[in-house]
Nucleic acid binder design. Structure first.
Lengths: 184, 184
DNA sequence: GTCGTTCTTGAACGGCGAGCAAGACCGCAG
DNA sequence: CTGCGGTCTTGCTCGCCGTTCAAGAACGAC
C-alpha cells in the first residue's frame, strides 16, 4: 500500500549510513567501529541506525554487498585477460578489504547472516573460475584446484603479501589451472 | 633478588587461568568469552586476571602458545609419513582451533603482540615445509609453493572443509611440492 | 614483629550493542 | 482544517565489556 511515503529520504539516509560505515570499517576495522560513531558520522542518534538495520551485522553485510558489487563490476575490465593477470588483479583489488576478510571469517561462526553471505561469495568465485577455464574439466579435479586457487588468493590478501611476492604465486596458480584443460 | 617468593602457586594459578581461557576460547570463541567468565572459571575476581596477563590479548597468546606447542609435539608422530598424509593430518589436527585462526587474523591488525606471534608461526611452518622436501629446491619456487600450501591448509581449516574434500586437496598440494625436488 | 613483596579484591570508568516507549513528522481521508 | 496512522527519530535505560586504581590481605625474609 505505502499510504505514507516520504519523497526519497529513506533510501538516501540508509545509503549515507552505509557510506559512513564503509569508510569506518575499512579504515578502523569492524570491532573498532562503534554503531555510535557511524550514527554520528551520518548526523543521527545512535538508535536510529537500528531502524535501518536489524543489527550491526546487517549494516556490515550492506557494506560488504556494496563493495562486492563494485568489485564484480570492475572485474569486467580484466575478464578477457590471462588467468594469471586476473588473479593478480584480484589480489590488488581486494587488498583494500583486507581487514574485512578476517572479520567475515571470524563472524561466520557467530552470525548466520554473514555465514550465508560468505557461502554465496565463494560459490560465485568458484563459478567464475570454472567459467574461465577453456574446455571441460573433470569436476573433481576442478573442485580441488579451484579450492586451492581461491584459498591462496584469500591468504595473499589477509596476510598482506606484497605485489612482488604475490605475482609469482598468481602465475603458479594460473599455470596450474590451465594445465587442467590441456592434460599432458 | 626475589626476596619474597611463594612456593609455587603463581605459575599454577596462571596455568589454571590459561586452561579455563583455552576451554572457553575454543568452545565459544574469543569475542564471546569475557575476561569475567575466565576469572569466574578460575574462582577469581575479574581484575585478578590482569595481574597475570597484561591484557586479554596476552591471555590469548598464552593459550595459542600452549596449543601450538602441543601440535608441534604431536607432529613428531607423522613427521616420517608422506607429505600428503602430513598435510591431511595437519588439517584434521588444526580443526579444533578453527575459530581461533580467524580470530588471530582479525587481531593481527590491532595487536602487535599477536602480529608477532602470527609471523613466528608462519616462519615455523615454512621452515618445516622446506625441511620436508628431498634435495635442494630453487628458493623462489619453494617460496611460491610453500605459500600456496600453507594458505590452502589455512583455508581448509577456516572454511571447515570436510575430510573427504580436504583429502584430495592435500594430495594435490603434496604432489605439487614433491615435483619441485624431482624436476621433469 | 616489622617490613616489603606478592597477590587479591571492591569499586569505578568510559564505552559498547541493543531494546523500549514516547513523540515528531508527514501524507492522506474526512 | 482536523484527525489518523504509518514513517522516522530520539532520550532513556539496561547489562555487559575490557581495563584501571587504590586499598588491603597473605606471606617470606630479617
Amino acid at each position: 500500500m505505502a499510504r505514507n511515503r516520504r519523497p526519497q529520504p529513506k533510501a538516501e539516509k540508509r545509503a549515507e549510513l552505509v557510506a559512513v560505515a564503509r569508510e569506518l570499517f575499512l579504515e578502523e576495522g569492524y570491532e573498532a567501529t562503534s554503531v555510535s560513531r557511524v550514527a554520528k558520522g551520518a548526523s543521527v542518534a545512535p538508535n536510529t541506525v537500528y531502524w535501518y538495520f536489524e543489527d550491526k551485522d546487517a549494516l556490515f553485510i550492506a557494506v560488504l554487498d556494496e563493495l562486492f558489487a563494485e568489485d564484480l563490476a570492475a572485474y569486467a575490465e580484466v575478464a578477457g585477460a590471462s588467468l594469471a593477470e586476473q588473479a593478480f588483479w584480484l589480489v590488488g583489488r581486494l587488498r583494500r578489504v583486507r581487514g574485512l576478510v578476517a572479520t567475515v571469517h571470524a563472524r561466520v561462526r557467530v552470525s548466520p547472516a554473514i555465514a550465508a553471505w560468505h557461502d554465496r561469495l565463494h560459490a560465485t568465485i568458484d563459478a567464475v573460475i570454472a567459467h574461465q577455464l577453456p574446455g571441460p574439466v573433470d569436476p573433481g579435479v576442478l573442485a580441488v584446484e579451484s579450492t586451492i586457487a581461491s584459498f591462496t588468493v584469500e591468504g595473499l590478501i589477509t596476510h598482506d603479501v606484497p605485489d612482488d611476492e604475490a605475482r609469482p604465486v598468481c602465475d603458479a596458480l594460473a599455470a596450474r589451472l590451465l594445465s587442467l584443460a590441456r592434460p599432458g
